[in-house]
Design a protein around this nucleic acid. Structure first.
Length: 310
RNA sequence: AGCUGCGUACAGGCACA
């Protein structure tokens, strides 16, 4: 039964709801946890009707069942339904409250998010981090700082969120200071710092930060690439692009965009054609490349393709 | 009772903005 759970979960994560359901249906007497995994699989893929139906049909439910359903509506941005579900739940725990708080914040209801946070019976580190991030996103630096200072304890997520909040408002002094005060190294915090430096024109410092990083994943590469491109250093951008160990859509889209903006349409096209998986954003980059270089016809074609995807 | 663990739900960095 544990293996069935893993399977259902895996199919759900890959977006294959039918396969998940098939495995679930093959289990004779599914227990609560398996049912919860199935609800999650539905919820994460936007199958909210099915998720709700399963929830209501399940004989044995626990607090996770309802919370998983709530998470589905929250993720879909359906605040109304999410609120209805939240109010109807027989039990709520701190995760339930966290999801409600984040759901409000993500959909622009910052006051409701704050109210939810304030009304929570108890808070975990996740609750505090979520609130911190909510203020950061809403560009309420002062509130973010208050949350950060009031938190009973801070983890790496807290620090990187705070650094990002500073950097996004251009408060590099504070960002650097927070970064220096962090107890241990963290890849995400370093990357946030690097990006902040790059976005605010401190190219040399961003480079230095990049060189200092020991375990870089793709994101710092992409950030440095963006910083170079924003500085108009198209040659260096191109050189760096060649060196990126395993490029992803973001890398290629940024490169394509930069090449288009600098009038190198042929190269932009090459990068675009070499991309493994294109999405709306990469197509949009190519489209604006055509548009900016007077290729109206190609631009229109790309636009048609882009619409075909929706 | 206490401690420890678990197959399930929640928070941080990149391209368009």
């Amino acid at each position: 039964e544990i293996r069935a759970g893993k399977l259902v979960q895996m199919h759900g994560k890959l977006g294959n709801v039918e396969a998940a359901r098939a495995v679930y249906d093959g289990v004779v007497d599914p227990d609560v946890i398996l049912g919860n995994i199935m609800i999650t699989a539905y919820a994460q893929n936007g199958c909210l009707v099915e998720a709700a139906e399963l929830y209501h049909r399940m004989m044995a439910k626990d607090v996770v069942s309802g919370t998983a359903l709530l998470a589905g509506y929250a993720q879909a941005g359906d605040i109304e339904q999410a609120k209805l579900v939240f109010d109807s739940l027989p039990q709520r725990n701190v995760v339930t409250w966290n999801i409600a708080t984040v759901a409000y914040a993500r959909n622009g209801y910052l006051d409701e998010a704050t109210a939810s946070f304030d009304r929570m019976p108890c808070r975990t580190m996740v609750s505090w981090n979520a609130m911190l991030h909510a203020f950061s996103e809403a560009q309420k630096l002062g509130d973010a700082k208050s949350v950060f200072d009031l938190m009973p304890e801070r983890c790496q997520v807290s620090w990187s969120t705070m650094i990002e909040a500073y950097a996004r408002e251009g408060h590099l002094v504070e960002a650097r200071e927070a970064f220096a005060r962090m107890p241990e190294f963290d890849i995400v915090a370093s990357t946030a710092m690097l990006d902040g430096l790059g976005q605010n024109g401190c190219l040399a410092e961003a480079k230095a930060m990049f060189d200092q990083m020991e375990d870089r994943d793709i994101v710092p590469w992409n950030n440095l690439l963006a910083a170079l491109a924003a500085n108009g250093e198209i040659e260096d951008t191109r050189k760096l692009f060649e060196k990126v160990p395993c490029r992803n859509v973001v890398t290629c889209t940024a490169m394509c965009q930069a090449l288009g903006e600098s009038g190198r349409l042929e190269e932009a096209k090459q990068v675009f054609d070499g991309m493994m998986d294109r999405n709306i954003l990469s197509m949009n980059a190519m489209l604006s490349g055509y548009a900016q270089n007077g290729e109206a016809e190609q631009a229109v074609k790309m636009f048609a393709q882009l619409r075909g995807r929706n």
